[in-house]
Design a protein around this nucleic acid. Structure first.
Length: 703
DNA sequence: CCGATCACGTA
DNA sequence: GACGTACGTGATCGTA
């Protein structure tokens, strides 16, 4: 039940909460919202959190998708009945509802939680249920279900067999709540105040979610507990709020007992949901205070850079990238017909029911003895777990042994395209656009990552990238750093030969080949350059002769020679790598240009494999992480410039930025600005930075 | 239903 | 003696 208790400041503790039991008070009048706004403004910063649900009926396109899913699901079954179809539909609808709840473009807010020094508020704006009248009942299969929940036999009688069953809870009506419209209107002063710091745990989600009710994104400064925690420890496996609370405040805290309310918020009794919202906001605030106070330089600057990137990313996610849905659909049909052909050929050679997606089936068919019905081929490669590999490289090496192998290769190629890039992207399309999530906390090197969909691994092939389009009357500009990682290595190591190659503007792979084979640059062949290229990459990743030999096709002996020669010619580089490893062993971590750290717990391990791996990671983290620092810095600079001429930053792919700009006669000027802000023409301690750019109407034209 | 395993797309 | 870094997604399979 609602209480009339007013929010009050809890005492002591530098403004933090001393009581972890916020009770059941919830905000139910607009005056209370106005009052909390006044309090928040005096504090200068606040944490906030929204609880969301998905409403399938609001999204006809997704309802259609569910219909389709049910159809294909049922088609794949051997037997069907209305009950099976209904259950399939229920499952698919439930899954889709969850998906919608996590999509800021589609979800609906039912609670807003706000916390600042000593205060927290829970504002319900559509919680669907009150208290529990009849609790839910779950049968785990060890008992006979109650009548009405039993299976119906063919005879028409109820089955008395033990079975699983679920009877949903019955809830009282929820109490009267303010509307979203009036609440967000009243909260406008805090979300659009340029001096208030708005803190969240994965704040982009909450900010983008509420943006729907304003028609625009909340303004910065934003801050995020995830990103601070990541700067302090990138090796954390779970960045969920509960996990971070446990590690920062100890295992025993009232929050951790609440379990997964968030995912089931719409079937949680009102009072429990209310308490949960208080706690979420409070703990986010507490965590922020604690983490931010633990930050010292250089990590403080790292976090300062990342929160600025965060605001850029929020914009990029919200804008999204246009994709040609019709083109994707027709590519899908093309692939489908190719796959039908390949599949029937495979079935003809193997047996009906053979599944070309099953590693097990393929393994059995290729490698089991002829008398067992297999081809008796010899596996040439093992998986990590020591099984016979059937991946592309492995099959390629035995391609001529049997006509089925090219079919497997074709199948795998088509299948990947169809499932991940055609179907996968189509189902994430919203009004013709894809809105990825960019994460600042999911890599150990400080790179960004992208998901739902991942726009950082879209195939370069024009059949896919050609379907990513500029907006109407627009062009895409793709600007990318030329060999940024190798330039960073040159900068750190000050290797004379490498510096010379870069300062003279010689192609680095040709330059390396020239030194490796002791020939003038002009006489380097294509093959020699390729070897130079492979050798260059190996140094950034820490690879050895066997890998070089495997990737370039030279003998192991030759590969060893090349690597020895490489480190002789680039002796500054090998010295630097050695120093990096020594320093990492001493400190337990390495540091990038911006001061980000990668901690390497295994760097002094007794186990050779773990230690060697950590040593390779040490070198690579500096290189990869520093490249990421540079690109992040560029994003911060490019973003406002691009907006000033009506452009939109869309995607970052580690060393490249994709920008949508107006299609007019100033495109060269736009490219120039973008390149300049990325640092083209500047240098890293005398190693020049080179940025190249191209433009076009699609992502493949602009590559 | 979920995690492990495998394969495969990107930088 | 072997030794490449960093990701996310989708499918299968075994276990729960």
């Amino acid at each position: 039940m609602k209480t009339l208790e007013r929010p009050r400041r809890t005492s002591g503790g530098r403004g933090l909460f001393t009581s972890f039991h916020p009770g059941s008070h919830y905000v139910s009048t607009i005056d209370e919202v106005r009052a909390l706004v006044d309090v928040v403004i005096t504090q200068g910063s606040f944490a906030f959190d929204v609880e969301t649900v998905g409403v399938l009926s609001h999204h006809p396109d997704l309802t259609e998708q569910v219909d389709q899913q049910v159809k294909t699901h049922v088609e794949a079954l051997t037997s069907t009945s209305d009950a099976i179809t209904d259950r399939a539909r229920e499952n698919k609808e439930q899954a889709m509802t969850k998906t919608i709840a996590l999509d800021p473009k589609r979800n609906e807010v039912i609670w807003v939680g706000i916390a600042t020094n000593g205060y927290s508020w829970a504002i319900p704006v559509g919680h669907p249920c009150g208290e529990v009248l009849v609790p839910e009942e779950v049968g785990n299969g060890s008992t006979i279900p109650p009548t009405g929940h039993r299976k119906i036999l063919k005879s028409g009688d109820e089955s008395l067999a033990k079975a699983r069953y679920h009877i949903p809870a019955v809830f009282a009506d929820p109490p009267a709540q303010l509307s979203r419209a009036e609440v967000f209107e009243a909260l406008k002063p805090i979300f659009f105040d340029h001096s208030l710091v708005k803190v969240g745990h994965n704040v982009k989600f909450d900010a983008r979610t509420i943006a729907k009710y304003y028609g625009e994104l909340p303004v910065g400064p934003l801050h995020d507990t995830m990103l601070v925690q990541h700067a302090l420890d990138e090796n954390i496996s779970s960045f969920r709020l509960t996990s971070l609370i446990s590690t920062n405040f100890g295992e025993h805290n009232p929050y951790s007992k609440h379990g997964k309310v968030g995912a089931n918020i719409s079937t949680t009794p009102f009072s429990i949901a209310c308490n949960y919202v208080h706690l979420d906001a409070r703990w986010t605030w507490m965590l922020y205070q604690k983490l931010i106070r633990g930050l010292t330089n250089p990590l403080r600057q790292v976090v300062e850079q990342d929160v600025r990137v965060l605001e850029v990313l929020m914009d990029m996610e919200d804008i999204g990238m246009q994709v040609d849905s019709k083109g994707l659909a027709s590519l899908g049909e093309e692939l489908d017909s190719k796959m039908t052909d390949v599949h029937s050929e495979i079935t003809a050679i193997t047996y009906p029911g053979f599944n070309p997606d099953s590693v097990k089936d393929k393994r059995l068919f290729l490698f089991s003895a002829k008398r067992d019905g297999g081809l008796g081929l010899k596996p040439n490669k093992e998986t990590e777990k020591g099984q016979a590999s059937v991946d592309h490289d492995s099959l390629r090496a035995m391609e001529h042994k049997h006509p089925i192998i090219p079919l497997f290769l074709n199948w795998a190629e088509y299948k990947k395209m169809k499932s991940t890039y055609v179907d996968g992207l189509l189902e994430k399309t919203n009004k013709g656009r894809l809105h990825p999530n960019f994460h600042l906390h999911r890599t150990s090197t400080g790179r960004l990552s992208s998901s739902d969909p991942n726009l950082q691994n879209v195939p370069r092939d024009s059949s896919i990238r050609g379907l990513f389009k500029a907006d109407d009357n627009s062009l895409l500009i793709v600007a990318d750093y030329d060999q940024i990682e190798l330039r960073i290595m040159a900068m750190f190591s000050k290797d004379e030969n490498m510096m010379e190659i870069f300062t003279k503007g010689i192609d680095i792979h040709t330059g390396a080949a020239s030194l490796l084979f002791d020939k003038p640059v002009a006489e380097i062949t294509k093959d020699e350059r390729q070897l130079g290229k492979s050798a260059n990459f190996l140094t950034a990743y820490g690879g050895g002769a066997s890998k070089l030999s495997a990737t370039s096709g030279v003998t192991l002996t030759k590969a060893r020679e090349i690597i020895n020669q490489y480190y002789e010619q680039f002796d500054g580089l090998s010295l630097w790598k050695h120093k990096v490893v020594m320093q990492a062993k001493k400190d337990g971590y390495v540091t990038t240009i911006s001061g980000r750290r990668r901690r390497l717990p295994d760097i002094n391990s007794n186990k050779d494999d773990l230690r060697s791996r950590a040593e390779r990671q040490a070198v690579n983290a500096i290189v990869q992480g520093s490249a990421s620092d540079i690109c992040k810095k560029a994003m911060i600079k490019v973003h406002p410039k691009v907006r000033s001429f009506g452009g939109k930053l869309l995607v970052q792919v580690h060393d490249e930025l994709v920008v949508n700009v107006p299609d007019n006669d100033r495109v060269d000027y736009y490219s120039g600005i973008i390149k300049e802000e990325m640092g083209h023409g500047k240098d890293l301690n005398n190693v020049p930075i080179v940025v190249s750019s191209q433009s076009g109407y699609t992502w493949s034209e602009a590559k």
